[in-house]
Design a protein around this nucleic acid. Structure first.
Lengths: 183, 183
DNA sequence: CTCGCATGAGACATCAATGTCTCATTCGGG
DNA sequence: CCCGAATGAGACATTGATGTCTCATGCGAG
C-alpha cells in the first residue's frame, strides 16, 4: 500500500489529540503503517510533532483564507473563521498544549503570521467600533484559541453536540453569557 | 530540612504547568529536594500527578466556597469565582491537559462535584434570567475552564498583564467581545 | 551532648520507548 | 512477465527515565 503522508498525519493528529502520550507504535498502528515505515518518513517523535505543527499551521492559514478575515464586517469575519476552523480545532488544541515541547527554540514563524492576522482582525473590529476596546486584541485572539480548544474537548467528551460547536464558540466569544433584550 | 508536602506540590505544579514533560529529577530539583526523597513521598509520576489533581480539586472547591457561588446574583457569583480561581488557573490548565493520562479510569469524583456546582451556578443564572439559555450550562462551564487556561497562558507568556486577568476572563465570559451602548 | 530519624548523594538494575537493521513479501511500472 | 523499490514484521542495541538500595550527613528531640 502506498504511503500517504497526509493520511498518516491526519491519523496521528486524530490519535494524539485524544491521547498526547501515545507511543510511536500506537501512532503507526492508528495510521495503518508499520513502525519501521513511520520511522522512515518521520525521524522520531519530534519530527512527527513538527510535521503536525506544519499541518496545523497550514490548516489555520487555509481557514483564515477561506473565511476571508480581512473582508467585510469583523463580526461576520469571526463567524466565518470559526466555521472554517472547526475542522482543525482538535489539532489546534493538541498543538496548543504541545507547543511547550519546543521550549528554548523560537516559535514557528507560521504562528506569528497567524497571530498577526488574528489580532489584526480583532484590532480592525475595535477600530470600526464593533468590538470593545477594554479587551485587547491579543487577549481576544488567545481567548479564541481557548474557546476552540474548549469546544473541541466538549464535543469529544460528549458534553456538547457536534453541530452546536460553531454556535457555542461564536456566540460566547462575541456575545458573552449575559442575556440581553435584543441584539 | 523538613519535607513540606504542600511546598513540594506547589513547586511541582509551578514547573509542570510550564513544561508538562519535565523529569522527576527536574521536579525534585525545582522543589529543592532530592530525587530519592521525592520518590519516598510520591511513588512515581502518576502518584505525583494524582496528588496534584487532589490539590487542584481542593483549591477549586476552596475557590467555589470562598466565592459563595450559591449566593446572590449569578453574575456577581461568577465575578467572585474568577477572582478566587485566579491563583489556581495555572494548575487547572495543567490538569486540564493532563487528565487524559488516566484514560480508561473513571474521572476523579471531585471533578464531578465541581462540575455540578459550576453548571449549577450557570443554570441558576439561566433560571433567574441573567444568562442566555441558548448556551448550555455545561458549555458555559467548559468555556470557563478554557478561558481560565487561556488567561493563564496569556499571562505566563507575557501577552497580557497579570493584573488584568480577572477583568479579561470575566468580561469576555459574561459580556463577550461585541461593543455595546451601555451595560 | 547524644541518639535517632529523615534526607542527600550516588550507584545500580529495570523497563519502556525508540532508532536501526535484516529479510521476506508485495505492489507497480516497464 | 520480471525487476526494483517500498513496505511489514521482527530482532536487536541504545537511550533515558525510573524505582530502589546503601551509606554518610545533618538536624532536631530528648
Amino acid at each position: 500500500m502506498a504511503f500517504d503522508r497526509d493520511d498518516v498525519l491526519r491519523a496521528a493528529a486524530e490519535l494524539l489529540t485524544r491521547r498526547a502520550t501515545a507511543t510511536m507504535e500506537e501512532v503507526a498502528r492508528a495510521a495503518g503503517v508499520s513502525r519501521a515505515t513511520l520511522n522512515r518518513h518521520f525521524a522520531g517523535r519530534d519530527a512527527l510533532v513538527r510535521a503536525l505543527e506544519d499541518l496545523g499551521i497550514a490548516e489555520c492559514e487555509a481557514a483564515l483564507d477561506a473565511a476571508r478575515v480581512e473582508e467585510g464586517a469583523a463580526v461576520d469575519a469571526v463567524r466565518r473563521l470559526v466555521r472554517e476552523a472547526e475542522s482543525c480545532a482538535g489539532l489546534l488544541a493538541f498543538l496548543y498544549s504541545e507547543s511547550q515541547l519546543f521550549e528554548g527554540e523560537e516559535r514557528h514563524a507560521g504562528w506569528a503570521r497567524i497571530d498577526e492576522r488574528l489580532t489584526g482582525l480583532f484590532r480592525r473590529g475595535q477600530e470600526s467600533g464593533e468590538f470593545r476596546i477594554d479587551l485587547s486584541a491579543a487577549w481576544l485572539s488567545e481567548a479564541l484559541y481557548g474557546l476552540l480548544a474548549a469546544g473541541s474537548y466538549a464535543v469529544t467528551e460528549g458534553r456538547a453536540a457536534r453541530n452546536g460547536f460553531v454556535h457555542m464558540v461564536v456566540e460566547l466569544l462575541l456575545g458573552g453569557a449575559i442575556r440581553r433584550n435584543a441584539s
